[in-house]
């Protein structure tokens, strides 16, 4: 009995070990391939030649000289993105709540806003705030115009995320709160929202990551000195667009990798929580 048990135990251990090895092999394979692809990419821009074929030659002196200038836009990119995501979250929440309203004007306001914003390009919206409003005597700084446009735009899209999160809280929760005598407002604040926000955090993280990149559009105003604006400025001036844009791309990419990593940690943390 005892031996049968322990051999059953080792059998299970063996299966787990095989499983783990398979997973480790897969991860290693993926990592190695990423490494190779990265090396190929670097090689393509190394300026070295294979036979009569020459890879792309970059002006490394230009890159060294302008690294600090372009990288200096990172702060502005994050600043605009963070302000915009905060505005977007607020608008998204209000809009999602408005979609639950049984009062026609509130419901209509929500759907109208979402329809208008989703029906027009983000690029146009940024220009609208920066270039069209001055015609009406409203002059916004580049940052403000950018934050308003990005916030309004993402707020409309993110309201759907919030709506899904709100409706993912079961009907029983509302009934339990009502049976306790909670008013609709108390039910929303104490029972529905805390649960819904939890569902909404991972998709909001995704939205934030894509916003850091859409914030590049704000450079079009010419007055927000973020990554993209700086890359264009030095690139055009010295006709080194290739180098300048590549550098900006690397900054965006690394930033996205970091944020994605943080996002996955946050998701793991939430999954481990009390739910």
């Amino acid at each position: 009995m005892d031996t049968a048990n322990s051999s059953g135990q080792s059998q299970a251990d063996l299966l787990v070990a095989v499983q783990k090895r398979k997973q480790a092999n897969f991860r290693m394979g993926v990592g190695a391939t990423w490494g190779i692809l990265l090396l190929i990419l670097i090689f393509l821009f190394s300026g070295k030649s294979i036979g009569s074929y020459q890879t792309i030659q970059l002006n490394t002196e230009f890159m060294r000289n302008n690294l600090a200038f372009i990288g200096g836009g990172l702060g502005q990119t994050l600043f605009v993105s963070i302000l915009s995501i905060l505005l977007a979250m607020l608008l998204a929440l209000l809009t999602a709540l408005g979609r639950l309203s049984t009062f026609p004007p509130i419901f209509a306001l929500s759907t109208f806003y979402v329809s208008l914003i989703r029906g027009t390009p983000l690029y146009l919206q940024i220009f609208f705030f920066f270039l069209a409003l001055p015609q009406l005597g409203i002059i916004l700084s580049g940052v403000l115009a950018g934050v308003l446009a990005l916030g309004l735009n993402y707020g409309a899209y993110m309201s759907e995320t919030f709506r899904a999160a709100l409706s993912s809280v079961g009907k029983g929760q509302r009934e339990a709160a009502t049976a306790l005598g909670m008013t609709p407002l108390q039910t929303m604040r104490r029972v529905i929202l805390p649960q819904a926000l939890r569902f909404a955090i991972p998709p909001m993280g995704n939205d934030f990551i894509s916003m850091t990149k859409d914030s590049a559009l704000v450079s079009a105003t010419g007055f927000v000195h973020e990554l993209m604006w700086r890359a264009q400025k030095v690139g055009r001036a010295q006709f080194n667009n290739l180098e300048a844009l590549l550098m900006a791309a690397m900054f965006y990419w690394v930033m996205t990798l970091l944020l994605t990593f943080l996002q996955s940690r946050l998701e793991a943390y939430l999954a481990k929580g009390d739910r």
Partner: peptide, 12 residues
């Protein structure tokens, strides 16, 4: 006071 079939405790 009400007790439900599905308990409906507040999970958070």
């Amino acid at each position: 006071g009400m007790v439900f079939q599905e308990f409906n405790l507040f999970p958070h």
